[in-house]
Design a protein around this nucleic acid. Structure first.
Lengths: 300, 300
DNA sequence: TCGCTTCGATAAGTTTAGATTATGATCAAC
DNA sequence: GTTGATCATAATCTAAACTTATCGAAGCGA
């Protein structure tokens, strides 16, 4: 399809404004014949006359009058596209899709989202909460912009940066508060309640106890830390939870929380994104915000 | 000012639609490298990334998503400009400024405008009523599209086509109805009431009586045919009026109307427009409409 | 892990479109 | 009739855009 060009529209608008080929050409920084030819070309393509060439003046035809309004619309729109681009370079705007694993989301997200909205008011934040493999999948497919997960992820196409390191703590019934602290091996002998398969935290806990991950164990697997703690308070066993979950999960449950002796079991939480993501530079900024959102929590 | 081109926007839209350089290029009927280069150029000019090039797929960035909507707006607008042009070629649209002399306007215009609006419903008709020299002036300056005047105008830059020929009739008091018909010379001796200077009809009447046009005469000059007829009915003299004015002007006045013997005094009414007017072809159509509007009048 | 395939980027060369300068035609004004 | 202003046309040149050929990275199957 042969068509008009934006350049022609600019020339056209200038000629409509000046009503004079010479001066319009000067305004466009081109020669008068160049302008004449482009206007003629545009009239040919449109199949309609834009200007009535009088001996002493150049006037818009009726169609020209209608056309110049339309042309100004188009030119303004095109210029605004440039403005839009500039704006998008300076600050993060538009939709931002963030994925978080379930053992982090409830404790970290409220603060992260609050801080993000403060820093980027024009950001339209979407949250996806699911297990790491799904997040990674969606991330690689471009359905997420970033994900907050436990490191390492070890995907060559993904950039990963650590944010915080947090310990796991032991949750027992309130009555067991003063019992001696079990070590990794003695934990193996206790009724250790765990999350269902798929959660990385399940594997990390098992790993701490030197147990193989994989097949479900005899004890019922929970789908959330909250359930785990409730089951502990009901006397069904003990469990491990990450430090950041303590304030929320043990607030209303009659359980005791104990830290392990060093080396404490722990996990590294980090952010990952596609290396090819054009948001890369902004994502490091966002990582800072997430880090700041998480830092004060252990001390609160 | 360096800027994007409509072509780039079309390529961009195609790539956004297909998510694949090869297929988008095919859809645009260009080679894949050509598309790659134009997209790259566009990204450079905008200073923002439009697509995230994954190994196996091409995805819009957030900015790209915003941009493609804007691009579609622009492209649609540009296409509509073509539609607009096509529409304007087929039928007359927009503002249409018509000038008419005062000795025609009241009698012809109602019908002309009615018929014009019927034939060109989308026409925005503006009427200017004044004497011939002013109409010609405004016509040449492009402030009118056409004028209905008495011919000839004899302006080299104007096209003129005759529409109708109409006679002048004598208006006397009702009591004078049976008096013998004066000839041109005897009219000279009567108290002939005329329009004020500037009206071509005044000159035409004077010319019929073999009197010089120009200086005002002793009798008060009127500014409208209506006034003339009223003055006649008041016994102040006689007058000439064009045939088409008879039904309107003598309806409620006690006057008699008499036709002259051949050769009757008469005038040729025609339409004029700039030869350079791009409406030329439509103006001949309009001339037909005006002619049809005028024709039945002498017989009614 | 090693080809194999897919797909986008890059390079070199060709074509086309747009620009320039010079000139012509028209018309109004003197 | 001559002159000056103004837009169109012609001839030429340049720069942009396109083409074909090739490269390089990444996924995928054996």
């Amino acid at each position: 399809m042969i068509n008009i060009t934006l350049k022609q529209l600019r020339y056209f608008e200038a000629l409509a404004r000046h009503g004079h080929f010479g001066r319009a050409a000067e305004a466009c920084a081109i020669s008068q014949p160049a302008l004449s030819m482009q206007i003629k070309e545009m009239e040919d393509v449109l199949g309609a006359t834009l200007f009535e060439r009088g001996a002493r003046q150049v006037r818009l035809t009726h169609f020209g009058e209608v056309a110049v309004e339309r042309a100004r619309d188009i030119l303004r729109s095109a210029d605004e596209l440039g403005d839009l681009a500039r704006a998008s370079r300076e600050r993060l705007v538009g939709r931002f899709r963030i994925g978080v694993i379930p053992t982090i989301a409830p404790y970290l997200l409220p603060k992260v989202i609050g801080n993000l909205k403060e820093s980027y008011p024009e950001l339209d934040i979407h949250v996806r909460e699911t297990v790491t493999p799904k997040l990674i999948q969606e991330l690689k497919e471009g359905r997420l912009d970033t994900a907050i997960v436990a490191l390492p992820v070890s995907e060559s196409s993904l950039e990963e940066i650590p944010l915080i390191q947090e310990s796991f703590v032991l949750v027992r019934t309130a009555g067991e508060a003063n019992l001696p602290l079990p070590n990794a091996d003695s934990l193996k002998e206790m009724r250790l309640l765990l999350l269902e398969e798929g959660h990385c935290f399940r594997d990390q806990a098992l790993s701490f106890c030197n147990l193989p991950s994989g097949p479900p164990r005899e004890v019922l697997d929970a789908s959330s830390l909250s359930t785990l703690v409730q089951m502990v308070s009901a006397g069904m066993g003990v469990t491990l939870i990450p430090e950041m979950a303590v304030p929320v999960e043990t607030r209303s449950a009659p359980v005791s929380v104990s830290r392990f002796e060093t080396p404490e079991p722990n996990r590294t939480i980090g952010m990952v994104w596609r290396r090819s993501s054009p948001l890369a530079s902004q994502l490091t900024e966002i990582a800072d915000i997430v880090r700041r959102s998480a830092e004060p929590m252990p001390h609160q």
